[in-house]
Every structure is written in structure tokens, then in C-alpha cells.
Design a protein around this nucleic acid. Structure first.
Lengths: 298, 298
DNA sequence: TTTATTAATAGGAAAATCCTATTTAAATCA
DNA sequence: TGATTTAAATAGGATTTTCCTATTAATAAA
């Protein structure tokens, strides 16, 4: 039987590799610095070569350390997955599920979704995090989240996508009645001063792409939420593109008029993303089907 | 930070799952039975559910245990690989390499190969195991071997094949001169009583396939080595098919005559096999190239 | 030069791992 | 049926590992 390292040692190794500081790494691992120091030392002894070059002041990975970080992380993450897998097999839809949701979905979908999920799976504790897609995917790949509810198209290498439904964009413009009967074409947009969310929101990119707009063509205003954008439309600053969700779930204020696009309607897709081979993959698919069904029955 | 199991605990789990006995598993893990018993208990407590059903007399996996054996084994094997990977990166071609070789290759190739490897890589310790292909591949997939030197075609799911060279078969028959000048065709074989190795040797199957012989067409004699077969040819019992290796590296006794086949010559391939993603994959390829080169220069 | 920061070391406490000895329960055998 | 054998659980204690606090050593910054 071969001599193998401890998961603890590997955890220390990863923490130092990521923080490049024994002190910070120790704090992250919830141990003191000497403890971590010694743990790493025994690991290096086991491997027969140093993983770091210490110069009393700074820490850097050796070539060997560099090559071993990813394999080490892989092992530790699999061990964490193992517990989740057991939990899932033992009792599906129990325990904690950490879900990330983007800001242009969260306020419209969650109010209906959360109570429904609580009813269906009372033993499932949901931890929600709202942020822009890039941040959520980063957290997902660091195993800080289990699943992300987001909009597509979006490249998510190493992850599994589950598209749930397609959501058309609509124009919100100043006007006296809530819904304009005639249908807009993409070229109609040029007649408006189109305002969008600030950079980083995928809705901005999706709207630009779906409506084939140029980046410089509209003024951003650095709007941080759809609610703000709608306020600005109401006050006559211009028009904006809203996803169907925001139109149907929010009582639009007077002075804002909605116009649909003629087919083919520009749209984004709503869906889920999780890490390939996540132990709770089966649950995620079921949840996805539930969410899609709920949206269909809305 | 999530609570994760110990590699030790996972090792215990795997051992019991494979032996279905706490005692035997403890022996394999080099601990006493109570130690293993307690380790498993804490693992089951961590997971929140039993992995085994104990009936005081027999042990069986629960449904949960069944589902977790493979993931557990995967984690432990990766941890073992981690050490080998470090060893390899730190100092390639050092340490122990466990190689399996089939009996119809070993005696002809190893006498030249081993000294050459020792010269080239003095720090590399080779552990050799000679057995039939099925046994070697089984050991390979249990991580008891790192690499197998064998003959193809052979299906090796989950493993990487590296073909090195193609080796023609020749006929060995009773006769007064060592080499017959004219070339044989496959149909000439029917004029001989063809003897082959006993079942289990891939040479038997390869010769049958390459020469398009029927199974019942020849008498086996349960020969366990090529040397025995050659002896039988010498004593006039019939003919046999020999790989080129056996002809060139062994001084054939008087009374045995070799005849080559006309093109296309029936043949087998010699090559290496290792587990997909083995940490020392790079070394294996280099070794393979060395072996091929040595064979070419023979 | 002094101060602040960071990792290594020393020494001891706490926890875990592991052992021997024993108990318990079931299957086998007389 | 009762005795014996077999195999896992439990008890209690030794050993080892892990971890902590306190201190030292070394470097960079002030």
C-alpha cells in the first residue's frame, strides 16, 4: 500500500497556492499559521521536493507546485462532492443548495419560485446569491455555488447547460397606453434613444446582439437595475429593451408603453448551469423541469 | 468549509466493500479489525446513513454503499496517482515502475531491453510480472501494474494503447535446414498438423485470426510455452506458428525449419497499454519509443 | 535604526488513530 | 440440544497526529 497524502495537507497546499501567504491560507483553513506550516512541511517531505520557494517575506510556487495544484484541487473537490453525493442518494432534495441568480431574473422569478420550491421540498434549504453572470460562474467553478440560473447564449466551459425557455425582448417607450397593438421591427429601434444596463449585465449584451445594435448607438446611463431604466423611460429620457419577465411581473408605471416585436422576436434564453458531473445533477434536472413548468403555467 | 471524509476512511470502506469482511479488510489495510470497525463507523456517522448491513455474521453493502464504492475508489486512486505524478515531475524515470509482460514476448525482448533500460535510467527500478493478457489487464486496472507490454489486436477499454511495431508470424516445421527459401501461403497451412499454445495465450488467438484457421483444425497439446512447441516440432509432431521474435532470438534446435509467409504476411502487433490519464504517461511514451527503436536496431 | 510583517521553530495540549482484550451474536458441529 | 467456532462490536488505554500558544528569525518598510 503506497504512502498517500492527507486531504488536509492537500487543502493546505491549495490554500497557500491560491493566497500565496501562509497566514491567509491558515485563516481560510481555520487553523493557525504554524499548524499549516507544519502540515505543508510533512507533505513536502512525503513528495520529496518543495512545493514553494520561501524567501521569508514572499511565497511562490515551485515548478513542481505549479503542476500539482490542479490535481490536488481535483482530489479535494471530489472528496467534497462525495459527501454531497451521499446526501443526495440518501435523501434527494434535502440539505443545502446554493443557487446563483442574475439580477435581471431574480426579482421576477424568485417571488413565485421560492414558495413553490419550499412547498414541494420542505427539507431543501436554498441559499441564494444575486450577481452578474461572470461572478456567479466564477463562484460556481470554485464550488461556492451548486447551480446558476442565468440567461443564454453564454459560453460556460466545463459546465452543463440546461435551457429552460426562450424569452422575447420588448420595447418600453414613453406613451399613454400600456400596450401598443402594432408590432415593432428591429429597424424601428433607430428612432429611439435606446438605454441599457451598465456593462457587466448579460442583458445588455443579449439585447445588443439580439437586436443587432452597435455598442455606441445608445446611451447607457450606467443603470444598475431594470427598475431604474423603467423610471427613466417614464420620464421621457428614451426607450429601453425589457425581457418579457419584467413586463409581465412588474406593474409598469403610467407613461410607459410596451411594444412587442414582429416575428422572429429577438430573445434571450433562460436556463440553468452546473458543474459537469455534479453529484446532484439529477436533482438539478428535476428542479429545471419544475421551474420550466411553473413558468409555462404562469 | 464542508466536512469531508478522510482518505483513510474511504480506504476502509473500499476494502470492506471488496472483501465483504471486516477482518479481511482490516488485514489488507494493515490495521486491526476494531480500528477499521471504528473508522467505518465515523464515516457512516459523517454521511448520516449506513454503508453496510451487518448481520453479525455476514456483511453486505446497502444501496447507498453500492452507489458510493466507485466514487470512493476514484478519490483514493487519484490520491495515489498524485504521489506518482509528483515523483514523475520531480525526477522523471526514477522510482518504481511495475510492468506486466506476456509470456510470448518476455523471454525474447527482456534480455535485451532490461540492461538497456538500466543503462539509460539507472534510477528506475523495474518490477516485472509475467502473465497472460487478461490477468495483466486486470492487475493494471486494479492499479497493481503501471504498464503492460502485450500484443494486439486486443480490446482494452479505459486504457491507452501505444502500438510499437508489427510482427509477422512464421511456420516452424520439421526439416533439415534452418530456413526454407520459398514463401508459404495461408493455404499451405492445411498440409500441416498445426499445434498452438493452450487457451488463454493471446498468441493462440492472434495466430488463429491472422492465419484464418478454424479452432478445431489443429491439436493444442496444452503447450504452455513456445519452447515446448518447438520441441514438439523437432520431434515430428507437426508444425506451429511462431512470432518473428521467437525465431530471431532463440537458437532453433536442429530438425526445425522456418518458412516465411508471402505478403501480406499474417502478423500481430506489439505495443504498450496503460490507464488513461496515468500520471507517468509522458514517461511511458518515451519508453515506448525507446523500445521500438531498440527493436528496429536489433 | 526601528517597526511591522511573515514564516519557522519549540513545547505542550487536545484529538485522532490504533492497539489489546473482551463481549456479543450467529452459524456450525457434535 | 449444547458446545464450538467465527466475526463484528465494545471498552479501555497507548501512541501518534494534529493543533495551539509563544517565541524566534528574517526581511521589508518607515
Amino acid at each position: 500500500m503506497a504512502e498517500i497524502p492527507t486531504l488536509r495537507q492537500l487543502t493546505y497546499f491549495i490554500a497557500v497556492a491560491e493566497t500565496l501567504s501562509f497566514g491567509k491560507a491558515a485563516a481560510r483553513c481555520c487553523v493557525t499559521q504554524p499548524t499549516l506550516s507544519e502540515g505543508l512541511h510533512t507533505l513536502e517531505t512525503l513528495l520529496g521536493a518543495p512545493l514553494f520557494t520561501r524567501t521569508k517575506r514572499t511565497v511562490a510556487l515551485t515548478a513542481l507546485g505549479q503542476e500539482l495544484v490542479l490535481p490536488a484541487r481535483d482530489i479535494v473537490l471530489r472528496a467534497e462532492d462525495f459527501v454531497q453525493l451521499a446526501q443526495m442518494k440518501r435523501a434527494p432534495f434535502t440539505g443545502t443548495l446554493r443557487i446563483g441568480v442574475i439580477p435581471t431574473i431574480a426579482p421576477y422569478l424568485l417571488p413565485a419560485l421560492l414558495p413553490a420550491l419550499q412547498t414541494q421540498f420542505p427539507a431543501l434549504e436554498l441559499q441564494l446569491k444575486e450577481d452578474v453572470t461572470a461572478q456567479l460562474l466564477s463562484a460556481l467553478n470554485q464550488h461556492l455555488l451548486d447551480m446558476v440560473l442565468m440567461a443564454f447564449p453564454y459560453d460556460t466551459p466545463g459546465n452543463t447547460q440546461m435551457k429552460l425557455w426562450s424569452e422575447p425582448f420588448m420595447i418600453a417607450m414613453p406613451g399613454n397606453k400600456p400596450l401598443r397593438e402594432d408590432l415593432a421591427s428591429l429597424s424601428d429601434l433607430s428612432r429611439h434613444n435606446v438605454m441599457l444596463l451598465e456593462d457587466g449585465h448579460c442583458l445588455r449584451d443579449h439585447a445588443l446582439a439580439a437586436c443587432r445594435l452597435q455598442t455606441g448607438q445608445q446611451r447607457t446611463f450606467g443603470a444598475t437595475s431594470l427598475a431604474t431604466l423603467i423610471q427613466m423611460v417614464q420620464h421621457g429620457y428614451g426607450a429601453t429593451l425589457l425581457p418579457a419577465m419584467a413586463v409581465s411581473h412588474q406593474t409598469l408605471p403610467p407613461g410607459v408603453m410596451i411594444q412587442r416585436f414582429a416575428n422572429p422576436q429577438p430573445s434571450r434564453q433562460i436556463g440553468l448551469v452546473w458543474r459537469h458531473g455534479h453529484p446532484r445533477e439529477n436533482e438539478f434536472r428535476t428542479l429545471g423541469e419544475m421551474i420550466a413548468k411553473m413558468h409555462e403555467d404562469r
